[in-house]
Simulated scan of single mutants.
Amino acid sequence: MTPAAATWSRPAPRRVRAIRDRLRTMYGRPIAPPHRRPLDELVLTVLSQSTNDRNRDVAYLRLTRALPTWEAVRDAPVSVVEEAIRPGGISKVKSARIQAILRAIGDPLSLDDLASMSVADAQRELCALPGVGRKTAACVLCFAFGMHDVPVDTHVSRVGSRLHLFRPKAGFEEMHDTMLALTPEGQALELHVNLLRHGRRTCHARIPDCASCALRRMCPERRG
């Protein structure tokens, strides 16, 4: 264990609330009522991997136009799915993964029963599907059902690590557990979206814009 990891302790709730409030001042309070379409969210999240939002959305639109039901996507030749989602990148991998997930769900092809489960049980159900990890599961639970789960993507991971919300060198599984514990009830979507926005707009991976950062005074990793 590194010295930094040995001295790290989970942030106090008031510090997390202060970060939330500062981000809220910058970016507002995002509102997205649960859409209750978990399969749509699951496929969309798979398509989002290693690409940007625009390419993801183009791939999703092409897929749903070519194959209007998830049963059709599951049963189509993989080459048809691959061609439809090509704009989203690594289409060979994603097409095979999407079909493997849909086949693993079985009949009926539905994830609606997740809504009646606890967060922990729903996480386990989703993560048992081929290639589905905690981030993908959290996207489904948060955006489809409004459940208390926080997706930790590269932006949330980077911003959270610089703010020392996470133990140094923590893996993504641990980051998800920590983020879940830190996030006030009912604010999972807000904290995820605003941390993501901050990572995209200010807290860049290589050269963060610390000089104009709204979180500068509370960031242990600020530069200059």
Rank of each mutant, 00 (worst) to 15 (best):
A170P: 00
A18H: 14
I98L: 10
A122I: 02
C210D: 03
R223E: 09
I98K: 06
R222W: 12
V73D: 04
L111C: 01
P3E: 06
R97Y: 01
D209F: 05
L180N: 12
E125A: 10
P108Y: 07
N194A: 08
P13T: 05
V81R: 00
N55C: 07
I105Y: 06
S110L: 10
L67W: 10
L195G: 14
R20S: 08
C127G: 01
I31G: 01
L44Q: 10
F166C: 12
L67F: 05
R14D: 15
S91P: 01
P151T: 03
R201G: 01
L191N: 08
S48D: 10
L114E: 01
Q123Y: 13
A84S: 11
H204R: 07
P151N: 03
P130L: 05
R162Q: 11
E83R: 15
L61I: 09
L109F: 05
L42A: 03
S9L: 12
R217S: 14
E185T: 11
L111Q: 07
V46L: 09
L191Q: 11
L163K: 03
R20Q: 02
T45W: 00
R167L: 04
R37C: 00
G28K: 09
A144S: 15
V46W: 05
S161Y: 07
A214C: 05
S212R: 00
K169R: 13
K169I: 08
A205F: 11
I101E: 09
G89N: 04
M26R: 15
E125L: 03
P184D: 10
P33N: 00
L42R: 11
A188F: 00
A96W: 06
P3S: 05
R222K: 14
L163T: 04
L39Q: 07
T64E: 03
D149G: 02
H164E: 13
R22F: 06
R167D: 03
R134T: 12
I90P: 00
R20H: 06
K92T: 15
A4V: 02
D153K: 11
L129N: 07
R10Y: 04
G171Y: 07
R65H: 15
P68L: 08
F172C: 08
R197E: 09
C219L: 01
G199K: 00
D209I: 12
Y27V: 12
N52A: 11
D209T: 13
L195A: 14
V81I: 10
S157R: 01
F143I: 07
Q123F: 10
L191C: 05
M117S: 08
F172Y: 13
R29K: 13
S48M: 04
P38E: 08
F166Q: 14
T202Y: 05
G133E: 02
P168N: 13
P11A: 13
R65F: 12
V43R: 02
R17N: 11
L126C: 06
L196F: 07
L129H: 06
R62E: 15
K94Y: 11
I98S: 00
P87S: 12
R24S: 14
V132E: 09
E190K: 02
C127T: 13
K135P: 08
R17K: 09
